[in-house]
Design a protein around this nucleic acid. Structure first.
Lengths: 191, 191
DNA sequence: AACCAAATATGATTGAAATCATATGTTGCC
DNA sequence: GGCAACATATGATTTCAATCATATTTGGTT
């Protein structure tokens, strides 16, 4: 359930938290107690600027984690608020740090996970820079991003679901994609 | 010059490479020899899909790094090509891995750098999801992203430079920003 | 000093995606 | 079994940023 290497942590390193919509997981300035995994719901991280504007830093969704950088800070630098009824698992900072020191496999696993995420985020950002909706959708499908729903893909790649459906239709009409089912599309190999 | 913790590496872990435009730093399938730092120019990472489409994974610019995930792979999974005459520094995989095992400060520094980058990329992706150009520019300025040129900011946040200048002008007219010089803007604190 | 390249700045026009609307299909649940 | 919620799908209209165009300023180079 927890992503590697956090699945290696002892039971007592995990604290489940149930949150009502609007409830805080932590606040800016709170002492850092760990990193979090989203079991259900969604958590939004925001920071206030000096001018009073709220900047959203991250929308953590089911299966995602947040506040990993808190391992290297004494206080949280933003607010984490449940935007829906949620369950999150807190992974104790102390346990993680101890394990990092004492277990090379865990330490390597953590570094590896972060390196992989950096790679994924760069790829996603690069995809966002593609102007044409059709090309963006094609590249997204070619990169294997159409796992869940089309709606989900749309939000992932920065399009409305309507624009995404339209692009899928046009790409299918053009012969670049093949419709393999309701909401399912495959690449048409060009040879 | 090199970002932490790579500045800690010995001289002999660094290999400078000079590349003409179009030249490869490495190819998909090559044995992994290290991670890279861009001293000048720009490097583009692309991968071919089964259907023959080229997917750009990352555009590494001056001061940036690429192929960090190669530390956890035997072969590179994409091509790295200089899109302009470039100089890059290769940081030997072996040296990094040895140092990771033997120097806790280095190891922690690397993990920390990656965690920070994950955080930054998430923030940038979240910013890209803001629809209105004005709001996007405002939030970008509020997050301290207007360091270099406006042109640079524009490309960073996914707008054309024209749209970015216009947004800056409108925000200034509205009183949300204050123009402090040519290409320089500051937040107007609302109190 | 003259010149060039790039950044700054803004106006006019266009186009592509957002929005609004609507219909059907599917899934889970009481 | 029926209802609610959501995903799929596509048509019509609008809007906002991209594009095209142009002028000025600045910094670096010869």
């Amino acid at each position: 359930m927890l992503p590697e290497p956090f699945d290696l942590l002892n039971e007592d390193a995990r604290t489940p938290l149930i949150l009502a919509k609007g409830e805080h997981v932590f606040r800016q300035g709170d002492e850092t107690r760990g990193v979090f995994f989203v079991v259900s719901g969604a958590i939004c991280l925001t920071r206030m600027t000096e001018a009073g504007a709220a900047v959203t830093l991250h929308n953590a969704k089911v299966g995602g984690m947040f506040a990993e950088a808190s391992l290297y800070s004494d206080q949280y630098h933003c607010d984490a608020i449940a935007v829906a009824p949620s369950e999150v698992t807190r992974l104790s900072k102390r346990s993680i740090q101890t394990r990092q020191r004492e277990d090379a496999a865990f330490s390597e696993g953590l570094t590896r996970r972060l390196a992989t995420q950096v790679q994924e985020y760069r790829q996603l950002l690069t995809l966002h820079a593609v102007k044409s909706a059709n090309e963006r959708v094609y590249l997204a499908v070619a990169s294997g991003r159409l796992r869940g729903s089309v709606t989900q893909l749309a939000s992932e790649i920065g399009l409305t679901k309507e624009a995404c459906y339209r692009a899928l239709k046009e790409l299918t009409d053009q012969g670049a994609l093949k419709k393999t089912g309701r909401g399912e599309y495959a690449l048409r190999t060009s040879f």
